[in-house]
């Protein structure tokens, strides 16, 4: 990580600035740095380096104080985070605490947040389906919003592009509602699921389909994944601790290290973006004002492209 020293504008100017290091931020960083752009990625939370900062990843159940269970006190302090299936004793350090980050809910809304490098890409459920033509046509067809200017056909090649790098396991199911993609071998269903699939097909085959969910796991890594330093998923079912094998996709295991290798990435944790700097004359956003959450100082970063 490049050290931003000195108070010169040059040191604080980049070709591109990316706000957030989650799944989207990591991808932006990868694409931009690959193209030679000096890119600054700003993350409000702390750094989480792949493997090094996964403190619980190799703990056995009896090494956890409550064998993985959340205490009553924690449930009272973080009632919303506790609604997330993945919020357990071994993973709670990757979730934003409701105590520290309360919000008003007029109607119930479980805003689950991960305020660290990698964001929710560390703790997500890894279920990855393509939107279909029906989703893109949805607003126009069902009249709930302004018609989108793009369709599935426009995005399809980009789905291919992302899926190849990320590694998505799935079968060619031939359903237009859940389009097929660039898949690694799909995970087989178990005995009960197979029976369920057959029975549903028998009775509702024309309208209902049971498939093995497409997921961001390396069922069989390809060269591109090995090149990222990731290997085959080991079926641990401990993903949300952070995976030492890189078996599932996260910014931490995949896009950020890849971007770092180009030499064009500056990753700055503890950087909350305060506001966008907008130049009235140029009619352009020219940068961001950051509050360093460690030191409290305000820093303006400038850029030529804005994301």
């Amino acid at each position: 990580m490049a050290n931003i020293v000195g108070d010169t504008v040059k040191a604080r100017t980049f070709d591109a600035i990316v706000i957030g290091s989650g799944a989207s931020g990591g991808w932006a960083a990868k694409e931009l740095t690959e193209k030679g752009l000096k890119t600054l990625v700003l993350e409000r939370g702390r750094d989480v380096a792949h493997i090094k900062d996964y403190p619980t990843t190799n703990l056995y159940p009896y090494e956890l104080e409550h064998r993985g269970e959340i205490t009553y006190a924690d449930k009272q302090a973080n009632p919303i985070a506790n609604r997330c299936y993945a919020y357990k004793e071994d993973t709670k350090h990757f979730f934003a605490s409701d105590e520290e980050h309360p919000y008003i809910q007029e109607k119930e809304f479980d805003w689950i947040r991960g305020y660290q490098v990698g964001g929710k890409s560390l703790i997500w459920a890894r279920q990855t389906q393509r939107w279909s033509q029906y989703d893109f046509e949805g607003p126009a067809r069902d009249g709930f919003a302004v018609d989108w200017p793009i369709r599935y056909a426009d995005i399809a090649p980009w789905y291919d592009h992302v899926e190849r790098f990320v590694g998505i396991a799935g079968n060619k199911d031939g359903l237009d509602t859940l389009p097929d993609g660039e898949f690694l071998p799909g995970y087989p269903l178990n005995a009960v699921e197979d029976y369920f699939q057959k029975t549903v097909h028998q009775h509702y085959g024309k309208q209902r389909h049971i498939i093995s969910a497409r997921c961001a796991h390396l069922s069989e890594p390809k060269a591109i994944h090995i090149e990222q330093g990731r290997v085959k998923c080991q079926n641990r079912v401990l993903c949300q601790r952070g995976c030492p094998f890189g078996g599932y996709f996260s910014s931490n295991s995949s896009t950020l290290p890849w971007a770092m290798k180009t030499g064009n990435l500056t990753l700055r944790p503890f950087s909350t973006v305060h506001s966008i700097l907008y130049d009235q004359d140029q009619q352009k956003a020219i940068g961001v004002k950051v509050i360093d959450t460690d030191s409290g100082e305000e820093i303006d970063f400038l850029q030529r492209l804005f994301l």
């Binding site: 190799n58 178990n190 005995a191 080991q234 641990r236 401990l238």
Partner: peptide, 16 residues
Amino acid sequence: MTNLVNYEIAPGRYNG
């Protein structure tokens, strides 16, 4: 977990 169940933290397989 060590002696009776033989818990494997990284099974490397899934047998449905």
